[in-house]
Simulated scan of single mutants.
Amino acid sequence: MIVMSIAGVDPSAGAGVLTDIKTFQAIGVYGTGIVTALTAQNPYKFFSTLPIDEEYISEQIDSVLDAYEVEFIKTGMLYSPEIIKLISKKIKEYNLKAVVDPVMVATSGGDLTKHDLAESLNKYLLPKAILTTPNITEAERLTDFEIKTAEDAIKASKKIVCNNIITGGHLDGINTINIEGNVKIKKQELIKTDNLHGTGCNLSAAIVAYLAKGNTLEDSILKSLDYVYESIKNGNYGTLIAKL
């Protein structure tokens, strides 16, 4: 089982391609990684971003798929509308099943791009995705709808153009899952910790790994929520050997 992450590089390895690879390995699938941008950051501070040329991103993807059969991928930081368009074309070209983490802002608060990517994500990428995994802020950008309550999250989930889970880290632990228009809620206890850098990356990577192992989309989401929760709880975030 071979999967792919298309995302940026976090040199502290708490987010992006490096942590995705660790999550893939922990759950028992082989991960490949396509780099869309380099960043200078750590869990507490964001410094800068250096995007990779679109042609080179394309060559990275082609080189991996020339050698390996990949069905499931995840996308993270895509930096620009041009890169979003490229990834959308590659999904169609290779018939890939994509889980989209619509990354726009680092956990530390830094803007990872100089663009408002919501419009491009909605127009080009999400219609080709099997799932997107926004947090509250990202969901608000994708829907242009303010989310203050659980009811707001349900309404927002119905405005997103593909299956989605709106994560509940900033909504009292209420995760809103919308698959084919059917909405379910999974509430998790919030853990008081500073160990949250890259949580969205790990969630989307875990979902891809569980999908590759033959789980349904709903089961993959639920198992991944448990995986990330246990990782945070045990303080070994991103390196937990999955037993789920």
Score class of each variant (00 low, 15 high):
6 I>Q: 02
7 A>P: 13
7 A>W: 08
9 V>K: 09
12 S>A: 15
13 A>Q: 07
14 G>H: 07
14 G>L: 12
15 A>I: 05
16 G>M: 08
17 V>P: 05
17 V>Y: 07
20 D>H: 12
22 K>W: 10
22 K>L: 05
23 T>K: 02
25 Q>Y: 14
25 Q>A: 10
25 Q>K: 15
26 A>D: 08
33 G>L: 15
35 V>S: 07
35 V>G: 09
40 A>P: 14
41 Q>H: 06
43 P>R: 04
46 F>N: 07
47 F>D: 02
47 F>G: 01
56 Y>V: 12
57 I>Y: 00
58 S>P: 03
58 S>I: 04
60 Q>W: 07
65 L>P: 03
65 L>H: 08
67 A>C: 09
68 Y>N: 05
68 Y>T: 04
68 Y>G: 00
69 E>D: 07
69 E>F: 07
71 E>S: 13
75 T>Q: 12
77 M>N: 00
78 L>S: 00
80 S>A: 02
80 S>R: 06
82 E>M: 00
82 E>P: 01
83 I>K: 12
94 Y>Q: 01
94 Y>A: 01
96 L>G: 09
100 V>I: 14
103 V>M: 04
104 M>D: 13
105 V>K: 13
106 A>H: 14
111 D>E: 13
112 L>E: 08
112 L>N: 11
115 H>K: 07
117 L>Q: 02
117 L>D: 12
119 E>Y: 14
120 S>V: 10
120 S>C: 02
120 S>Y: 10
123 K>S: 07
123 K>F: 01
123 K>M: 09
126 L>N: 06
129 A>L: 11
132 T>Q: 09
135 N>Y: 11
137 T>K: 15
144 D>T: 11
145 F>R: 12
146 E>Q: 15
148 K>D: 02
149 T>I: 09
153 A>S: 13
160 I>K: 09
162 C>E: 05
163 N>T: 00
163 N>F: 02
163 N>Y: 06
164 N>H: 08
166 I>Y: 10
167 T>Y: 14
168 G>M: 12
169 G>A: 13
169 G>T: 06
172 D>N: 15
173 G>K: 11
180 E>D: 13
182 N>Y: 05
186 K>C: 04
188 Q>T: 00
189 E>V: 04
194 D>H: 10
197 H>I: 11
204 S>Y: 11
204 S>I: 09
206 A>I: 11
207 I>T: 06
210 Y>D: 00
216 T>S: 15
216 T>A: 01
217 L>N: 01
219 D>V: 11
219 D>R: 09
222 L>D: 00
225 L>I: 15
225 L>S: 05
227 Y>L: 14
230 E>L: 11
232 I>W: 03
235 G>A: 12
236 N>H: 09
237 Y>M: 15
238 G>W: 10
239 T>E: 15
240 L>R: 15
241 I>M: 14
242 A>L: 14
243 K>R: 15
243 K>C: 04
